[in-house]
Write a protein that binds this DNA or RNA. Structure first.
Length: 260
DNA sequence: ATGCCGCCGATTCGGCGA
């Protein structure tokens, strides 16, 4: 069995003790991190090595940044960044082959405030992502695209659709761009296994959102048909959101059977 | 209508996030 997890860590250095703890307790085969918020030379790769994880990462000064860690095997990088916009310098995408699976780690733009240039950037980024995912699909390989999508797919995926109605995360254009990925043949594993909704992966630090369980589901794992056939289970490590100095996101994960 | 909280990087505060 192979376990692939995604975790928006909100600062890999500020969160390092929590992150190492989570790796030791849940021991994912592959851990995809978003918002590492550091430059490449500041990434604490040696701390992960001590736990047996080898990593690749795509950092940036101050914000964004993504990484892929693998337990006992070095991820083989396929690429970083999305094609289609030479002006885009945000570190939001890294892709690798590991354990016989193509793994893409994404940190999709938030897009607030909307309307505006940041929302336009989000929608363009989603089209560029769709193009890359179509290329991966054409390879007909087991693949997962996991991370912070910054999209609330359905009203059942948010504590209060009314409170969030003006937010970029649940605008019809954001949802439509997300639904196109599903229409292309990708499976939202956690959505599939929780059809009634009510499962959150993010709780704001502000206004007592965690204590009130005011969250929403924006971290997703999308599986190619070749990998969806092997889906065993999936979940959210909600308890880790309750800890001291926690990220505002909880980790998400999928377990897939070994190739036949 | 806005801030709440928290990171980062630069200097006592702004940018950014969701």
């Amino acid at each position: 069995m192979i376990k692939v997890a995604g975790f928006n860590i909100n600062g890999v250095r500020a969160r390092l003790p929590r992150l190492l703890e989570w790796l030791e307790e849940t021991r994912p085969s592959v851990a995809c991190l978003q918002e590492i918020k550091c430059q490449d030379d500041a990434f604490p790769a040696n701390e992960f090595e001590k736990l047996g994880y080898k990593a690749i990462w795509h950092g940036q000064k101050g914000f964004n940044g993504v990484a892929i860690l693998a337990d006992g095997e070095a991820p083989v990088e396929v690429g970083r960044g999305l094609a289609g916009d030479p002006e885009d310098e945000h570190s939001r995408y890294i892709e690798a082959d590991v354990f016989g699976i193509r793994v893409s780690c994404i940190y999709l733009p938030n897009g607030n405030p909307q309307p505006g240039p940041k929302f336009d950037y989000k929608l363009r980024w989603m089209e560029r992502l769709r193009d890359r995912m179509a290329e991966i699909s054409a390879e007909e390989i087991p693949a997962v695209v996991i991370g912070d999508y910054n999209v609330i797919p359905f009203d059942r995926d948010v504590w209060s659709p009314a409170a969030m109605s003006g937010d970029a995360l649940m605008q019809p254009a954001s949802r439509d761009a997300y639904f196109r990925l599903l229409a292309d043949g990708w499976t939202d594993a956690i959505g599939l296994h929780n059809p009634r909704g009510g499962v959150w992966t993010y709780w704001d630090y502000q206004a007592g959102a965690w204590q009130r369980d005011h969250g929403f589901r924006i971290d997703h794992a999308l599986l190619s048909p070749e990998l969806a056939d092997r889906l065993d289970s999936c979940g959210v490590d909600k308890a880790h959101r309750a800890r001291e100095k926690a990220s505002d996101h909880a980790p998400v994960w999928v377990r897939v059977r070994d190739a036949a």
